[in-house]
Simulated assay, not measured.
Amino acid sequence: MKRSYDMATRQRAKDATREAIIGAAIEAFMAERSFAVTLPSVAERAGVTVKTVLRHFGSRDALIDAAWMQAYHDVIAERAAPHNDIPTALRVLIDHYERRGDMVLAVLSDEHDPRAVHTADTGRLAHRAWVDDVFAARLPDDDPARSRVIDVLVVATDVYCWKLLRRERGLSVDDVLDRMSLLTESVLTGVDRGENR
Results as ranks from 00 to 15, higher is better:
residue 1 M to F: 08
residue 2 K to G: 04
residue 2 K to I: 09
residue 3 R to V: 14
residue 3 R to P: 04
residue 8 A to G: 11
residue 9 T to G: 02
residue 12 R to M: 13
residue 14 K to M: 09
residue 14 K to Q: 12
residue 17 T to R: 08
residue 18 R to P: 09
residue 20 A to G: 15
residue 20 A to F: 07
residue 21 I to D: 09
residue 24 A to G: 11
residue 26 I to V: 01
residue 26 I to T: 00
residue 28 A to L: 09
residue 29 F to R: 00
residue 30 M to G: 04
residue 30 M to Y: 07
residue 31 A to R: 13
residue 34 S to D: 04
residue 37 V to H: 00
residue 37 V to P: 00
residue 39 L to C: 04
residue 41 S to V: 09
residue 41 S to L: 09
residue 41 S to Y: 02
residue 41 S to W: 02
residue 45 R to D: 04
residue 50 V to I: 10
residue 51 K to A: 15
residue 53 V to P: 07
residue 54 L to V: 12
residue 57 F to M: 12
residue 59 S to E: 11
residue 59 S to M: 08
residue 60 R to S: 11
residue 61 D to A: 15
residue 63 L to A: 04
residue 64 I to V: 15
residue 65 D to G: 03
residue 66 A to K: 07
residue 67 A to M: 08
residue 67 A to T: 11
residue 70 Q to I: 06
residue 70 Q to L: 10
residue 70 Q to W: 08
residue 70 Q to E: 15
residue 72 Y to S: 07
residue 72 Y to D: 08
residue 74 D to T: 09
residue 74 D to S: 07
residue 75 V to D: 14
residue 75 V to F: 12
residue 77 A to P: 01
residue 79 R to T: 13
residue 79 R to V: 09
residue 81 A to R: 01
residue 83 H to K: 12
residue 87 P to L: 10
residue 88 T to R: 14
residue 88 T to Q: 14
residue 92 V to Y: 01
residue 92 V to R: 04
residue 93 L to I: 05
residue 94 I to P: 10
residue 95 D to Y: 02
residue 95 D to T: 12
residue 96 H to C: 08
residue 96 H to Q: 01
residue 97 Y to Q: 03
residue 99 R to S: 14
residue 100 R to E: 12
residue 100 R to T: 14
residue 106 A to H: 03
residue 106 A to P: 03
residue 106 A to D: 02
residue 107 V to P: 00
residue 107 V to M: 03
residue 109 S to W: 04
residue 110 D to R: 01
residue 110 D to M: 01
residue 117 V to R: 15
residue 118 H to Q: 14
residue 120 A to R: 07
residue 121 D to G: 10
residue 126 A to M: 04
residue 127 H to C: 11
residue 128 R to V: 03
residue 128 R to K: 05
residue 129 A to L: 12
residue 130 W to F: 05
residue 130 W to A: 05
residue 132 D to I: 11
residue 132 D to F: 07
residue 133 D to H: 12
residue 133 D to G: 11
residue 133 D to P: 01
residue 135 F to I: 11
residue 137 A to F: 09
residue 138 R to G: 01
residue 139 L to K: 08
residue 140 P to V: 03
residue 143 D to L: 15
residue 145 A to Y: 11
residue 150 I to P: 10
residue 150 I to S: 11
residue 151 D to E: 05
residue 154 V to I: 05
residue 157 T to E: 07
residue 159 V to M: 02
residue 159 V to D: 00
residue 162 W to N: 01
residue 164 L to P: 03
residue 165 L to Y: 06
residue 166 R to A: 15
residue 166 R to D: 11
residue 168 E to P: 00
residue 169 R to I: 10
residue 171 L to T: 10
residue 173 V to I: 12
residue 173 V to C: 10
residue 175 D to L: 13
residue 178 D to H: 13
residue 178 D to A: 15
residue 179 R to K: 12
residue 180 M to L: 09
residue 183 L to D: 13
residue 187 V to D: 00
residue 188 L to Q: 04
residue 189 T to I: 10
residue 190 G to M: 04
residue 191 V to Y: 05
residue 192 D to C: 06
residue 193 R to G: 12
residue 195 E to Y: 13
